[in-house]
């Protein structure tokens, strides 16, 4: 009955969804999972994940866990200011992605790091 009224339901939801709608996928997630909004053309589609996709990091709070975009230079990150892996062309050093390495370190293309 809840579904008819708003199109939102808690039955028949996929994966880690708590509530979902046919059009927008997951609206809320089961405890401790991250909600991530995927774009499908004009539509946003919610999915519930145990870890956020590449290019996003998870923020936890008592009532909600979200996937937030990393800084543009990061392939994956711990938070907005601390990268775990860099995009091609830059090298990781203490959470920062730079195109050149500090003195005493050299860029490693295989590891994408200053070593």
């Amino acid at each position: 009955q809840h579904k008819q009224v708003t199109g939102v339901s808690s039955q028949g939801c996929q994966g880690g969804c708590q509530t979902c709608s046919v059009y927008n996928g997951c609206l809320t997630c089961k405890p401790k999972l991250f909600i991530h909004l995927e774009r499908d053309g004009m539509r946003q589609f919610g999915v519930c994940l145990a870890s956020c996709p590449n290019g996003f990091y998870g923020t936890r709070s008592p009532d909600r866990n979200d996937c937030i975009k990393c800084g543009s230079e990061c392939d994956s990150c711990f938070n907005r200011n601390f990268c775990l892996r860099c995009r091609a062309g830059s090298y990781l050093h203490k959470g920062k992605c730079t195109e050149s390495c500090p003195d005493g370190l050299v860029p490693s293309d295989t590891m994408k790091e200053c070593v």
Partner: peptide, 10 residues
């Protein structure tokens, strides 16, 4: 000594 980020919120 290498720690850059420390989260203790909530």
């Amino acid at each position: 000594s290498s720690l850059v980020v420390l989260h203790l919120h909530n």
